[in-house]
Design a protein around this nucleic acid. Structure first.
Length: 756
DNA sequence: TGCCCGGGTGTTTTT
DNA sequence: CACCCGGGCA
């Protein structure tokens, strides 16, 4: 097993651990994927059947990469038998096998975020609940959070604490919406993302024989990115592992960045409780980055209070300093980065794929796209609006979905009048009401409206009838037709091709091309793997909701990668531009009210820095367009947390040519003085220039603040203290602001003044 | 029923 | 600024 020789001591120990529970705490860049892959290879070489291994990853991309790497060692035939994928894809697979136990069809639809929100929205309307108070996103968040903690709709509505909480925040109807939502999904034969995990839990809980079956199958369990699992996922793992306890989890608490999605670091602590005789391995040597980058990252993360002690180090060379770049505006930032890539490419003979631009929010990509395009640099955006989420694509997919699962309400609503066939809102409302009253699906009502006491004029009835029979004609061919043949015909028969083909605007042409691209993709699917089986459209459709753009990589030419930091997790690049490092953007404005949120932002910053191998550029802009307004920005506090010895302040020449503002002059003078303090001197002039709002806002001493007081907050205005909690410096206050509602404030950070 | 216009509203992050 | 939604009109 010569492959094991490439490992260092702790890596080797972890990779050759065979039986019993184990946890690997792996610092950034310490080779955890390598350990996981080699461990799997080692298991197989030691007689473990690949069929008995399940390996859960965070993204499909990570899964595929690992699969390739394992196949390289043990051969593809063995490798393909390992169950490897995301929680969502693996458990949707199991749910399809076991669906009937839960009274679901095995071809259930997976609702993506759009479908879910659209359904919640209709429910809120139908129930006559105020949409202004019950914002769809917020309701979805509550329902999702409940599901991730395995709180069913019934539990939710009967749990006194939750009801109390919802009443206190003025939203007592969420339980009702949750109930209706679950019913509607069920009648539609649909599960949302959270259901895939929730229902797996139900399955394992209510059907002991199923649990035993999968416990027996998955004798060896591996979980990557364990710090980002939520309770629902945790419990699935725990149950599956209960029989053999051959469980291996790999994670890094410093890289936990998904708590907003219910991820819980607590799971790492639970691990020690659940498996007292577990073995722990710590990987602390970083192989990815230069000393400078590793130490800067250590600087940053040291500011977090809550973490498992570990010391990441590297024997790599010291490397370049981290460049700090200031631009006048968001557009200039784009130009700077594009120019810099252009130059580095030429000077160092690097291909495009060696570069990544990382940002906090998807909306920031625009200025970089424009600038890169102008220099003819090929780039690829990961995440954001994915191909499969585009309207035209979703519309065609909705026809496929509806053909495969006639009860899919969201699919039906999407296409029943697209292209326009004269079935409008009024008719649809009638149908919906009848479906609800009779606890059935829309489809059943359309099939025979009269059965449900509905009266329509004959023209409308004819329209229903022809829509119904068109869809049915597709449905009956699903099992006998080739995916591509059927898809192409559906695109034609439904009128989609004609509709889009007639639109000669640039957007229309692009939409048409997207449809063609989707059809091409299906063709590829049809032609793939010549094992003789018929490739069905329903098979193509199965996990389409779980696919993201990153899964459809085309490597025709090397491209610059643009993505959010969340999406960059697990990746590495020789050159990284970390952009938009401004207060209120990164850290996000919404994270400033609690220590936990701020620490998560800092971990995110840590993840971002540690993606870089050799060159790291930190960039911020002084002004930025937001909500259509030009706003002044100040540099992110995180930049200050890096010791100045690791930073380099670039010369003026890298800034795009344009009339300098007066403060630009100031910056040059300042840096030429060569003043060196322990902090970053170049940040200070900007700080002074902050124009909004003048910060003579003095906070009062936190210890004085008490329940009942009227206070003034710098951003939220006047408010009343409802409760306080803890002692300073960690004293928190719940304050009600008429303008923004209830807020939890950590008084150390919040700018609050006592009014009376 | 379908289209167009205007106002209101909103931004983390993802499977 | 962009998008979405609702209202009003053809």
């Amino acid at each position: 097993m010569e492959f094991l020789q490439e490992l260092n001591k702790p890596q080797l120990e972890a990779a050759t651990h065979i039986n019993g529970p184990m946890m690997v705490i792996a610092g950034a860049g310490s080779g955890k994927t390598r350990v996981l892959t080699y461990r799997i290879a080692h298991l197989i070489k030691n007689g473990v059947d690949p069929f008995n291994i399940i390996s859960l990853t965070f993204t499909n991309k990570a899964a595929r990469e690992m699969k390739t790497r394992i196949s390289d060692i043990i051969g593809e035939n063995e490798g393909r038998n390992i169950w490897m994928g995301t929680f969502h894809s693996i458990f949707s697979r199991i749910l399809r096998i076991e669906a009937e136990k839960l009274n679901y069809p095995s071809n259930f639809t997976i609702y993506d975020t759009q479908d879910t929100k659209s359904l919640i929205k209709s429910i809120i309307k139908e129930l006559g609940i105020d949409e202004k108070v019950y914002k769809v996103g917020m309701v979805y968040g509550r329902i999702s959070g409940a599901k991730n903690n395995l709180i069913s709709a019934v539990n939710y509505a009967t749990n006194p604490e939750i009801q109390e909480e919802d009443k206190r925040t003025g939203k007592p109807e969420i339980g009702r919406i949750y109930k209706a939502y679950v019913q509607r999904c069920f009648r539609s034969g649909a599960m949302d993302f959270d259901d895939l995990l929730f229902n797996t839990n139900v399955l394992l809980r209510d059907f002991p024989e199923v649990l035993v079956k999968y416990q027996h199958k998955f004798k060896y369990i591996l979980v990557d990115e364990y710090q980002d699992t939520n309770f629902s996922q945790y419990l699935i793992i725990k149950q599956l592992a209960a029989a053999h306890e051959n469980i291996c989890v790999v994670g890094d608490d410093a890289q936990s960045i998904y708590s907003f999605r219910g991820a819980n670091i607590q799971n790492i602590l639970n691990f020690q409780k659940d498996y007292p005789d577990f073995k722990i391995y710590k990987l602390e040597q970083n192989y990815r980055s230069s000393k400078t980058i590793v130490e800067a990252a250590n600087n940053v993360i040291a500011n977090n209070k809550e973490q498992i002690p570990k010391e990441v180090w590297t024997s790599n060379e010291e490397g370049e300093k981290i460049k700090l770049q200031r631009s006048l505006s968001d557009n200039d930032e784009g130009v700077f980065v594009a120019n810099e890539i252009f130059n580095l490419k030429n000077n160092k003979q690097l291909s495009n794929d060696k570069f990544a631009i990382l940002y906090r929010t998807n909306a920031q990509s625009r200025s970089f796209e424009e600038a890169l395009r102008r220099l003819n640099l090929a780039y690829k955006i990961y995440g954001g609006q994915s191909f499969y989420q585009r309207k035209e694509i979703k519309n065609l997919l909705a026809y496929f979905r509806l053909a495969a699962n006639n009860n899919d309400e969201e699919a039906l609503k999407r296409v029943i009048n697209y292209p326009a066939r004269g079935i409008g809102k009024t008719s649809l409302d009638k149908l919906t009401i009848a479906a609800n009253e009779n606890s059935t699906s829309l489809w059943e009502v359309i099939k025979s409206p009269s059965k449900f006491g509905l009266k329509f004029n004959s023209g409308t009835l004819n329209k229903f009838e022809s829509f119904y029979s068109m869809i049915r004609s597709f449905s009956v061919r699903l099992d006998s037709n080739d995916a591509y043949d059927l898809a192409k015909e559906m695109a034609k028969t439904t009128g989609i091709l004609k509709e889009l083909g007639g639109d000669k605007t640039p957007e229309g042409i692009s939409r048409f091309e997207n449809i063609q691209e989707l059809l091409n993709g299906i063709k590829e699917f049809s032609d793939s793997d010549g094992d003789g089986d018929l490739k069905k459209l329903s098979d193509f459709l199965i996990d389409v909701a779980l696919l993201t753009d990153a899964d459809a990589d085309d490597d025709s030419e090397p491209k610059v990668s643009l993505m959010t930091i969340h999406a960059a997790k697990g990746l590495e690049f020789p050159v990284v531009f970390l952009v938009g490092l401004e207060e209120n953007l990164f850290p996000s404005q919404l994270s400033l009210n609690s220590r936990a949120d701020l620490e998560e932002e800092r971990r995110l910053f840590y993840v971002a820095i540690t993606r870089a191998e050799k060159t790291l550029v930190l960039s911020y802009a002084q002004t930025r367009f937001r909500w259509g307004n030009l706003i002044q920005c100040e540099p992110s506090r995180f930049v200050d947390e890096i010791d100045a010895q690791f930073l380099e302040f670039p010369s003026k020449t890298t800034e795009p040519k344009r009339k300098a503002f007066s403060f630009d002059q100031e910056r040059i003078n300042f840096s030429s003085t060569g003043k060196s303090t322990s902090q970053n001197p170049n940040l200070k002039p900007v700080r002074k220039l902050k124009t909004s709002p003048p910060s003579n806002f003095e906070s009062d001493d936190a210890s004085l603040i008490a329940t009942g007081m009227e206070v003034m907050h710098e951003k939220f205005g006047k408010g009343k203290v409802i409760a306080t909690e803890g002692e300073s410096p960690n004293k928190k206050a719940t304050v009600f602001f008429p303008r923004v509602g209830h807020k939890q404030l950590l008084l150390r950070f919040a700018k609050v003044k006592i009014l009376n």
